[in-house]
Design a protein around this nucleic acid. Structure first.
Lengths: 225, 225
DNA sequence: ATGATATTTAAATAATATTTACGCAAATTT
DNA sequence: AAATTTGCGTAAATATTATTTAAATATCAT
């Protein structure tokens, strides 16, 4: 692992460098902000640790600057006291973690490892289905049409999911009853119709283009036009 | 830098004090062990230098005594002879360095500086997770929202930690039961609900903006708005 | 062991979702 | 065009899920 340390107190730099080296971590350092940015652009670090108060550019601006350049290397900011404002500002600006001085070396090490790991993690596979301007996030149970979030109840969500999975194909009420409601026999109930109605109210009514269409005597289809 | 010198030979004390003062080091002194301990408890020194042979308490007992009281100030012991046994005993007891008389002033100075640096390099801990205006100190088991400290019981804290670690993601009660309560089977218990309620009373009720939201039929999310 | 505090269980209340029932409208058949 | 079938919309009835409170049990520190 290779990190960049931006800190103006040479004593602290030396001590940290020594400690980290013992744990097989390479340390580049910069004594001021602009040099830090330079190095960050030149090399690929696993993590950047920066004091908030360094000569030249401060920790916030440094982070902002890096982010604006598309450099996503995780940043840990160091600050003197438990300054909540600093913390909030730091995270707003794109920093990833925060350490208040004085901190324990062991802790710094733990966070370094956590962050460098994070950087390499494969982003959790989001289960998302889409149709036209609609998308549903299966894990978050979220349905969005045209950028607007629409609240759906569990049954509504399940029905919508079945529609979207079978987009373009005409599906019968019996099929829906079987697959969504798990009803495997003849029934006189009108749940399916009622729920299609609910869904239309939420998903079609507020919009110009309707996507749920009925095929008389057969069933329903999800399609444009 | 400020040090405490424990030594019964007044002549030596005077000489040392003069020499150290010239290097910008403040020196308090005690002519016997018990007075030394008293001073060490009263003030924060960067380093304590103690002769092994002093009236009252000797250097070993003095060190042991300080350590047992949680005082971690680095201690340098002085002895007349090059006594290896003394050296070993001294380190066992928690002393940090050793100097045999006669010693060179320059060497004492060097060791002083080395030790005082060490004392400041590895200071106390802190591990912090944040979300919006909330932050939790994992090591101190402290939760703060909007600058106000909120007391949480261990389970409440664990639940909040799980929320904050999964901020923005909808988490089911089953998941919470598994990860926070370690329940790996179907259960009819409502602990999770009860604790979400406790948490809300402490973390959301007193504030305008709620951060714990329920997603009916699915679970809970930590998010703004 | 005792008292204080934390956790869990249990039961009542509240909120929300689902299903049923039925009148009306639209489409299809005769 | 009347009769019939099929779908739609609404509201009330029922069921499910969530919240709150209190009491019972367990845990911890002294």
């Amino acid at each position: 692992m290779k990190i960049l340390l931006i800190e103006d107190e040479e004593k602290a730099v030396k001590a940290l460098k020594k400690g980290l080296n013992e744990h097989n971590i390479d340390v580049d350092f910069a004594l001021n902000g602009s040099r830090g940015i330079e190095l960050a652009e030149l090399n690929e670090y696993d993590v950047i640790i920066s004091d908030i108060i360094v000569p030249g550019v401060n920790g916030f601006d440094l982070t902002k600057n890096l982010r604006s350049k598309g450099i996503k290397t995780p940043v840990i900011l160091l600050t003197a006291l438990n300054a909540t404002d600093d913390k909030v500002l730091g995270l707003e600006v794109g920093a990833d973690d925060y350490l208040t001085k004085p901190y324990e070396f062991k802790e710094l090490l733990a966070r370094l490892k956590a962050l460098s790991r994070r950087g390499k993690e494969i982003p959790p596979p989001k289960l998302i289905l889409t149709f036209g301007d609609s998308e549903m996030n299966l894990t978050g149970k979220e349905f969005i049409r045209d950028g607007k979030k629409i609240e759906l109840t569990p049954k509504e969500f399940a029905l919508m999911e079945y529609f979207i999975r079978n987009q373009g194909r005409v599906i019968s009420k019996t099929e829906i009853a079987e697959k969504v409601w798990d009803i495997n026999f003849e029934t006189t109930s009108n749940v399916v119709e009622v729920y299609v109605n609910y869904l239309r109210n939420k998903v079609d009514k507020p919009f110009e283009k309707k996507i749920i269409h009925t095929v008389f005597g057969v069933g329903y289809v999800l399609k444009d036009g």
